[in-house]
Design a protein around this nucleic acid. Structure first.
Lengths: 219, 219
DNA sequence: AATAAACTGGACCGATGGTCAAGTTAGGCG
DNA sequence: CGCCTAACTTGACCATCGGTCCAGTTTATT
């Protein structure tokens, strides 16, 4: 789909089955217990197929993450005002953090798995390029994280050009990866997280002494 | 307390050698390349000895982390005012965050290794208890993290009892574990991190009534 | 129907975290 | 001083994992 290149029907079916199986296993077991072999077995395909399609454990996780994050990306880039363009930066940031927190909450297993897949993947030259995407490096290099960070960073910079928006965005987003926070989400207390995230964001965007409302709001 | 038990001289010497070897390897290579076998070899002992002393990879890392964090703990509990007791909560929090950021910066390898050691450790029944400490579970269960969190949480609560101090502390501390932030520290820009952390903390501790024109509390 | 490219599956590989039983040694005690 | 036991050490061994390979199968195109 992302490709449009010719992908055989059976291949597409298997890709889907693998993704679904991973989803299922990740929801039921701890990330480190979900081995590639188990995924293959659960999907009803051979281990080789999984690697052929996704290149590596990391690739699989990233692909799944991308799928999950697709809706949020859409809402952010061309959805209605609270999340999408049109609202003031602050509100958009808040809405975005809420949304990300919820997304992360519903996918903590995946997140952990993503983080856990930091092993080496030295060789890669099977034939040409990996079919889906040759994801390499840390989980934060994934297009999903890139997008999230870019968005949050942009909103912060828009409201407070004087701050280190890039870093602040990393800090805000990074906090969602810590285990205590993940554990909270696991217990269904995403509202509590959202509230605290709000406190941080509001405080951060508040004027250092006096705010100059004209600073940035156009657009 | 840490001792108490009688530990043979040779055992103590080996423990020290292992810790030192781990330190050395961690400083020179990527965490996932530092296998237990290599640690054993570098320390000049058998692999079994390493496991006997520290129980698991996780145990080793936690022990090393504890050693490194000892100085900070001391400074916080009975050091001079900026960090230790005596100064107002805000300043203590700032100083603490600065210190933690610096500590983390100087030990990013260890941090990553700690996070990387989230593998299963099903069986444990050698004879009695593990000699050092039977660390199990996530890295955030380590006594070091516990202490840090307790301290930060306490300071926040002291200044703003109305907030969710526990969670906020987790968020603040958790952000230090994210890879983008670690990467920053790796490049020696710990001052930049400290500055942004300050912005967040200051905003968070700022007076509540000042701003809440609309959806301030939400949820 | 033929054919080339794409796909599939599972045996296989090197490495790793962790276990264990058998041998070695420190060091308190008579 | 020599003995005796509990603590300690060791390295072979195990299960499993991520990843590779290639012979055999399927698809789609002409």
């Amino acid at each position: 789909m992302t490709e449009g290149r010719r992908e055989r029907a059976d291949a597409a079916r298997n890709r889907e089955a693998i993704l679904r199986a991973t989803e299922e296993l990740l929801a039921r077991y701890r990330p480190e217990q979900v081995s590639m072999e188990r995924v293959a077995a659960a999907a009803g395909v051979g281990k080789g197929t999984v690697f052929h399609r996704f290149g590596s454990r990391m690739g699989l996780m990233v692909a799944l993450m991308r799928e999950r994050a697709y809706a949020l990306d859409e809402a952010v880039t061309k959805g209605p005002p609270p999340l999408g363009p049109g609202a003031p930066p602050e509100e958009r940031l808040m809405a975005f953090l809420d949304a990300v927190a919820e997304l992360v909450g519903r996918n903590k297993g995946l997140l952990a798995a993503l983080g856990h897949a930091a092993t080496a993947s030295s060789k890669s030259s099977s034939s040409k390029e990996r079919s889906d995407d040759c994801a390499e490096g840390s989980p934060d290099d994934s297009p999903v994280y890139r997008f999230w960070h870019g968005h949050a960073s942009g909103l912060i910079a828009e409201r407070r050009p004087d701050l280190d928006a890039e870093l602040l965005a990393h800090i805000l987003l990074g906090s969602l990866q810590s285990e205590p926070v993940l554990r909270l989400l696991e217990r269904g207390e995403s509202a509590r997280l959202a509230a605290s995230l709000r406190v941080m964001a509001v405080g951060m965007l508040a004027a250092p002494e006096r705010r100059s409302p004209r600073e940035a709001d156009g657009n």
